[in-house]
C-alpha cells in the first residue's frame, strides 16, 4: 500500500470522486493555480478546469450559499474555507440555510454538500487563524461534523462525505497535513458516525479528536512502558456521535479522559461526560472522569504561549497518570 500524506489523501479523494461523478465540483478561494492555501487542490485546475475548480472572490458567505444553492439543485459541491475561523463569516448559510433546509421543508429537500476547513493551532497564525470550532458546529441539528486524524481516515471519510445526501463539515488539522500513512490508491469509504479505537488498552479510555488522537497515541506508547495501557478512541465523527463505542470502552477500562484542542467552556468534552454520566457506563467508573481542553483564551502568537494554550503530550500524560493514581 502506498504512503500518502494526509493532504495527498484528501486530494486523492477529491480527484477520485470528481472523475466518476460530474456533479461534484470544488468552490473556494485561491484553489486554482495557487492550489488552496494549504495545497489541497494543487494541480487539479489542469485536470478539471475552472468550471469545476471554481475560484471565488473573498466572500465566505457567498461560497457557503453558492454551495448550498447548487446542492439544492442537484449538484454535489465541495466548498473550501481557507481557515476554520472563517466559517463564522459563513455561519448563516451553513447553519440557518444548509443545515435546516431538509427539516424545514418537511423532508423534501436534500443538501448534499461538503465544506472542508482546516482548524487548529500550532502554526503561529494566532487568534483568528487557529481556532478549533467543532463544538460550535456540533450544536446545530442538521450538520454532520467529521474530523479525521489520519491520512487513511481522511480519504475514506471524505469520499463518504461527498456521497452523503446531507451537509457535512469536514474539519482538517493544519498540523496533520504533512503526516503520512498507508492509503490505498483505490476507492474505499469509512462510514460517517463511527468512532475508531486507534489503540486498545485495559486501563483508561481517552476520547480525542484529530490532532489530539496523534498526541494521545504517542503518550500511550510512553505510558505502556510504565505499565499503563491506554485505550484511544478516535471519534472521527463529532456529529452524529458514536455513543456506543465510547460507553463500551468506558465499561471496559473504568476510567475516562476526554481531550480536545477546542476551548474548554462549552467544549464537546462536557457533552461526552454528560452522556457517560447518564449512562450505565457510569457505574463502571473507578475514578472521576476528567477533561483536558484548550485554555479559555484566544490562541496567542508567541510560540511558547501558543504551545501552552492547548493540550500537549506532557499534559495528556500528566492527566492520565493523575487519573490512574487518583491524585489530581
Amino acid at each position: 500500500m502506498p504512503e500518502m500524506t494526509y493532504l495527498e489523501a484528501i486530494r486523492s479523494a477529491l480527484q477520485y470522486e470528481m472523475r466518476q461523478d460530474e456533479r461534484v465540483f470544488i468552490i473556494g478561494e485561491d484553489i486554482g493555480v495557487y492550489g488552496g492555501a494549504f495545497g489541497a487542490t494543487f494541480g487539479m485546475l489542469e485536470e478539471f478546469g475552472p468550471e469545476r475548480i471554481r475560484e471565488t472572490p473573498i466572500s465566505e458567505a457567498g461560497i457557503m450559499g453558492a454551495a448550498t444553492g447548487a446542492a439544492l439543485v442537484g449538484m454535489r459541491p465541495v466548498a473550501e474555507l481557507m481557515f476554520m475561523d472563517f466559517v463564522l463569516l459563513a455561519l448563516d448559510q451553513l447553519a440557518n440555510q444548509a443545515g435546516k433546509a431538509r427539516f424545514m421543508f418537511g423532508g423534501k429537500a436534500t443538501v448534499p454538500l461538503v465544506v472542508r476547513m482546516p482548524g487548529g493551532s500550532g502554526s503561529g497564525a494566532a487568534a483568528q487563524h487557529s481556532q478549533s470550532l467543532e463544538s460550535i458546529l456540533m450544536h446545530f441539528p442538521g450538520i454532520k461534523v467529521v474530523n479525521p486524524s489520519t491520512a487513511y481516515d481522511a480519504k475514506g471519510l471524505l469520499l463518504s462525505a461527498i456521497r452523503d445526501p446531507n451537509p457535512v463539515v469536514f474539519v482538517e488539522h493544519k498540523l496533520l497535513y504533512k503526516t503520512k500513512g498507508e492509503v490505498p490508491e483505490e476507492e474505499y469509504t469509512i462510514p460517517i458516525g463511527l468512532a475508531d479505537i486507534k489503540r486498545e488498552g485495559r486501563d483508561i479510555t481517552v476520547v480525542a479528536n484529530n490532532i489530539m488522537v496523534k498526541k494521545t497515541l504517542a503518550v500511550a506508547e510512553e505510558l505502556a512502558e510504565e505499565g499503563i495501557e491506554v485505550e484511544v478512541v478516535d471519534l472521527r465523527t463529532m456529529r452524529p456521535l458514536d455513543v456506543g463505542t465510547i460507553t463500551s470502552s468506558v465499561k471496559k477500562t473504568g476510567r475516562l479522559l476526554v481531550v480536545h484542542e477546542a476551548c474548554q467552556t462549552g467544549g464537546w468534552a462536557g457533552e461526552i461526560m454528560a452522556i457517560v454520566s447518564a449512562h450505565d457506563a457510569f457505574n463502571y467508573l473507578d475514578a472521576p472522569m476528567r477533561r483536558l481542553a484548550g485554555a479559555d483564551v484566544p490562541i496567542p502568537y508567541n510560540r511558547l504561549l501558543e504551545r501552552a494554550a492547548v493540550p500537549q503530550e506532557e499534559d495528556i500524560a500528566r492527566e492520565i497518570r493523575a487519573i490512574m493514581s487518583n491524585k489530581y
Binding site: G62, G69, Q97, A109
Partner: peptide
C-alpha cells in the same frame, strides 16, 4: 426552493442555484 426567515439569506442560495 423556499421562503426564508433570514433577511437576505436567499441571495447566495439564488446565486448558487444559478451556478448549478
Amino acid at each position: 426552493l423556499g421562503a426564508n426567515g433570514i433577511v437576505g439569506g436567499g441571495f447566495p442560495l439564488a446565486m448558487g442555484a444559478g451556478l448549478a
